[in-house]
Amino acid sequence: MTDTMIDTKANVARSGAGRDALVVYGAELTSRLFLGTAQYPSPYVLERAVKAAGTEVVTVSVRREGAREKGGQRFWEMIAGLGVRVLPNTAGCRTVREAIATAEMARELFDTDWVKLEVIANDDTLQPDLFGLVEAAGVLVREGFKVFPYTTEDLGAAERLLAAGCELLMPWGAPIGTGRGLANPYALRTLRNYFPGVPLVVDAGIGAPSHAAQAMEMGFDAVLLNTAVAKAGDPVAMAEAFGAAIRAGRTAFVAGMMEVRDMAAPSTPVAGTPFFDLK
């Protein structure tokens, strides 16, 4: 818990006086919720969810387009109308080469050098292929991309990604789409404490607002999620719930949480307790 206190100072110092903004690649973000745009019941629900969450960054992808479909164009117009930053992903890429070509296509389509870099190791866990990730990150940084690497809690991989030129890291909470929350809080806490000055975004596996709040209380800088909102009974209300939970978790972290104890300690003053000396 002492480590958390140190982080608090680092975060407040970074955020500047009076404002608690997150700065990633020079962009100042007020919202610490990055929202995915997939799996919503309709584009209209997505649009309202983005607004309800107050999010400033949404993730998008590139996919094969048939000649007669105009889905891509319509989707792009809708996203452009939201006035938020787009973070294209390389979801589904299994090799460094695929990820690089996908990032390049996304940069041209979305006119941004931001990329959420995913190199996937296997289909069951969708876990990052850390070796491919580090290699692809190096290539993309040299090509001028601002890389947001989807990684694990692995400290060695984290160091190599930073050495490759990534200015932030996006460790997983749990495998994509599972909604299990923070599967390995100890490892995440270690990562947080090991890199107190690096923006860390918990990406994937978040199922409930409490999971997101937990990540923020631990000192993570932001949370990226998609399915938990998109697949909720009421995605718009859930987006609002996540926005509130993330603000609460962030405020709690900056406020500095009490230390956890093993034994009870009375909160009401002991001195003056009636009947105290009567046995």
């Binding site: 799996q39 992808s61 094969r64 387009e65 889905g71 294209p88 389509l109 979305f110």
Partner: peptide, 10 residues
């Protein structure tokens, strides 16, 4: 040849 367009993503 791959021909892609903007699409929803997580």
């Amino acid at each position: 040849i791959e021909i892609v367009s903007p699409r929803q993503g997580g």
